[in-house]
Amino acid sequence: MQSIEDKVINIISNNVLNKEIVIDKNTNLVQDLALDSIVFIQIILDIETEFEIEFPDELLTMDSLSSLNTIVSIIKNII
């Protein structure tokens, strides 16, 4: 069974055009991938759909959800 981390990495990979981009647990979506805000919103939507969760409103910023580790940690707390 896929881990939460793997599922999140898959979701990010599906939202970036380039399949050669290296994404791992230490990836920072803003600093390493320089993601546009529109792509970022789509990633959040896909994560919420996949895990059937809603991120708390106060965490819905690129600053709060930029690190893969943070995203995975928040998902674990919510589930």
């Binding site: 970036v16 055009l17 380039n18 050669e20 981009i21 290296v22 803003v30 600093q31 390493d32 991938l33 320089a34 993601l35 546009d36 805000s37 529109i38």
Partner: peptide
Amino acid sequence: FSYNEFVEKIKDKLLPYEIPQYF
């Protein structure tokens, strides 16, 4: 070059939406 190599060098010079998604 790899995508990550491109982004590493240009991310300080361009806004996120100005960075190509594919090279």
